[in-house]
């Protein structure tokens, strides 16, 4: 009885693992096909422009407002801690480095996943459920090239810009709270920041992070949409999976990238 029980559990675990590995393989093949069939999306760039509008422009408000508040909170919290050590002029450094290296790409990525990623999944999933993708295929138009690829590139191109805007408004928010409200010296705020933030090591690495997150989130979003069971529950489940999986992917990739980029302790 117990042996059979353990056996059944192991079997379930095994088939679960196999299922996910198979799905990852399919998703990779899908990505390769998608990238190889991106000719239409890039040649007729208007298709991609429209998707930059939906993924990027429509995410702007939430990105800007969140960035502003995150920067303001960072300044408040950072000042509390720094002034205990008499280092409140380093407030700019703290706000800028936190945003540029970590919070900008990560929080913008999480917001992007829930705002744009879920919308992409739902849209592609519904197009599949209502046979729009089959109809396209019947018209001898490859739905991956025509529908999926523009959404993929639109998301991938939008994400670094959104992350940069998130960091920039965050730093502005930190400036407003730190300098205008609390009264940290403006000169110290900016000059210490400039001395400490390196373009290649901090800013460029942040941009690379946001690009990687953009690829991961959009890949997950288009794949979940394309792979969604063509029913109402199927699409809603796929939308939830997009947000959950891409949020986990962002945090996991962030750890990997941070470990690769910022190890060695050569930073101040």
């Amino acid at each position: 009885m117990r042996v059979a029980d353990v056996r059944a559990r192991l079997e379930r675990l095994g088939s679960g693992v196999t299922f996910h590995v198979l799905r990852l393989g399919f998703a990779s093949r899908f990505l390769a096909y998608l990238v190889l069939h991106s000719g239409t999306a890039l040649r007729r760039f208007r298709l991609t422009t429209a998707e930059i509008y939906f993924a990027g422009v429509l995410s702007l408000i939430i990105i800007l407002v969140s960035g502003m508040f995150v920067g303001m909170v960072l300044a408040l919290q950072g000042y509390e801690t720094l002034q205990r050590f008499g280092a409140s002029e380093s407030l700019g450094v703290l706000v800028a480095l936190s945003l540029v290296r970590e919070l900008g790409p990560v929080v913008a990525g999480l917001l992007f996943a829930s705002r744009a990623g879920s919308a992409i999944t739902a849209e592609i999933g519904l197009m599949k459920a209502t046979e729009q993708l089959s109809a396209m295929e019947m018209m001898a138009v490859d739905p991956i090239a025509r529908v999926v690829a523009p959404r993929f590139w639109g998301g991938v191109l939008s994400m670094p810009l959104l992350a940069a805007l998130f960091s920039a408004t965050g730093i502005f928010g930190g400036y407003v709270v730190g300098v205008q409200l609390i009264g940290v010296d403006a000169g110290a705020f900016w000059s210490q920041m400039q001395a400490a933030v390196d373009v290649r090591n901090d800013i460029l690495n942040g941009v690379i992070k946001s690009l990687v997150f953009g690829i991961a989130v959009t890949w997950i979003a288009v794949f979940e949409g394309y792979d969604a069971p063509p029913t109402a529950e199927g699409v809603s489940g796929a939308t939830t999976r997009t947000v959950v999986t891409s949020s986990l992917a962002i945090l996991f990739l962030d750890f990997i990238l941070t470990a690769l980029m910022f190890t060695g302790g050569t930073h101040q």
């Binding site: 209502t130 046979e131 729009q132 089959s134 109809a135 019947m138 018209m139």
Partner: peptide, 16 residues
């Protein structure tokens, strides 16, 4: 398929 046309059960019009 370029020489074929297909009418789907519920039309399958592109909603966008």
């Amino acid at each position: 398929r370029r020489k074929m046309g297909m009418l789907f059960q519920f039309g399958a019009l592109f909603t966008d």
